[in-house]
């Protein structure tokens, strides 16, 4: 049976206005929270491997206490165990400091075969943490993985590159970031929400399934996380001006008239549309 670790993250739901400060920054305490959409692909890949080859799936997340919600969501989709790394000293970690903390969780957990992550998060958008964890663990990685199959301890994978793909082979252990061109999502297929609700009600079972750990528990050095441990800092932010804004709307007449007026207006505004049309 394979041991799979999936790194997941709780992110602010940017489709909701809640928690968006006037200056455009996000008040994470007030914002609606959700599982990073990219992580669903990683989670689905883990569950697919579990069902096809047999695996124990542990989801790991780092964040404030409410982040436990994404672990519960992962259980509903078939994950077996969850780990929450929560500690005041990890706040404001950049990617390098985050990767440091997360690789210490792996050391704490012990042996594994495959680490899966989403391609990137919707709040950080860097796609850096996965490869940085792999570097710290000194293991191989396959990023932008679209499809994979397993034979013994060997894993074959298809990786996206600009204008094509690579077919790769690697021996485990390996870290894989899953592209969102991977299998279309239907990860709710295997959900057993009732069973999860049931075990969450039983303190003993809940404790067996969900581990909450601190930097001290995993033996991490607090000076290498958070602001102190981050080699980068955000110097300044600007709100991007309201985009677009004034839409010239054509409506209420016949489509023919509306289209004609639109074209006339485009030409009058000198938008250079003429240059782009086939003669």
């Amino acid at each position: 049976m394979f041991k799979i670790i999936v790194f997941i993250k709780q992110v602010p739901d940017t489709s909701s206005k809640a928690g968006v400060n006037p200056d455009g920054t996000i008040d994470r305490a007030r914002a609606k929270r959700m599982l990073n959409p990219f992580d669903r692909y990683a989670l689905q890949k883990a569950i697919e491997i579990k069902r096809a080859y047999g695996a124990e799936v542990t989801c790991v997340t780092m964040g404030p206490p409410p982040a436990v919600e994404v672990l519960v969501e992962a259980f509903e989709h078939g994950a077996d165990y969850g780990v929450l790394l929560t500690d005041k000293r990890i706040a404001a970690s950049d990617t390098l400091a985050t990767a440091y903390a997360l690789h210490k969780v792996i050391h704490h957990l012990g042996e594994f075969d495959i680490i899966l992550t989403g391609l990137q998060t919707t709040d950080g958008d860097t796609a850096q943490v996965g490869p940085q964890i792999a570097e710290r663990l000194n293991i191989a990685q396959i990023t932008y993985c679209e499809a994979l199959s397993i034979s013994g301890k060997k894993l074959s994978a298809r990786r996206v590159v600009e204008g094509g793909h690579q077919e790769l082979e690697v021996s485990m252990p390996v870290l894989i970031t899953v592209a969102n061109s991977a299998t279309p999502l239907d990860y709710k297929r295997f959900a057993d929400v009732a069973a999860v609700k049931e075990f969450l009600r039983q303190p003993q079972e809940r404790e067996r399934r969900i581990k909450t750990v601190s930097l001290d528990i995993i033996g991490a050095d607090g000076t290498r996380t958070g602001l102190v441990g981050s080699p980068t800092v955000v110097g300044k932010t600007w709100k991007l001006g309201e985009i677009g804004g004034s839409c010239t709307l054509f409506q209420g007449e016949s489509p023919e008239r509306e289209v004609e007026e639109l074209i006339g207006k485009l030409r009058a505004d000198g938008k250079g549309v003429e240059e782009l049309v086939n003669v």
Partner: peptide, 23 residues
């Protein structure tokens, strides 16, 4: 910030323990 650059740059940055800003 390509499929190659985003694969390679974070490993170099983590190896050197330096900052890396994406995209």
């Amino acid at each position: 910030a390509t499929t190659i650059g985003r694969d390679l740059a974070p490993r170099i940055a983590a190896h050197l323990e330096v900052g890396l800003t994406a995209d």
